[in-house]
């Protein structure tokens, strides 16, 4: 009874984790812009990792293997958003900007030489 419950729960977790991993990969491949690809990559970084590793922990049972999986989970949970933030910050500093709406005319509002202004604002804020 208990084993069946654990099996069903870990089945659900692993299947949904695989689903989120493959959804994140499809989004990384298909989205049109770098800044939207960041969102898709972080889906498989957080949701896929958490669900798959929790499912594997349930399947492994208590012991050393579950502790190793927990260590991997904690490490990926910290470093995934950190490296995503590092990539986003490096892209922003290097001057990559999001796609504008077609209605926003270039050079009016959205980006009149955005490098200097943004960096001055960041310097003021920090």
């Amino acid at each position: 009874m208990m084993e069946t419950l654990v099996n069903i729960l870990s089945w659900i977790l692993i299947v949904s984790g695989s689903f989120f991993a493959i959804i994140g990969a499809i989004g990384t491949l298909r989205f049109p812009d770098f800044w939207s690809r960041l969102h898709a990559a972080s889906i498989s970084d957080s949701a896929g990792v958490i669900l798959l590793l929790l499912g594997m922990m349930l399947q492994a049972g208590p012991g050393l293997i579950a502790v190793k999986l927990l260590i991997i989970l904690i490490f990926l949970f910290i470093t995934g958003p950190t490296s995503t933030h590092a990539v986003a910050n490096a892209a922003l500093v290097s001057g990559l900007r999001p796609r504008q709406l077609p209605s926003a005319k270039p050079g009016t509002d959205a980006e009149p030489a955005p490098d200097d202004e943004n960096q001055q604002k960041q310097g003021d804020a920090s």
Binding site: G17, T28, L29, A41, L52, L76, V87
Partner: peptide
Amino acid sequence: LVLVRLFTGPTLYDRVLAVNSFGTHTVL
């Protein structure tokens, strides 16, 4: 799929993001 994005990524940061995502998938 991530590997396809890694090879066709237009900018450097797309490639770095794809490498990072590929590594996470590899761990899993």
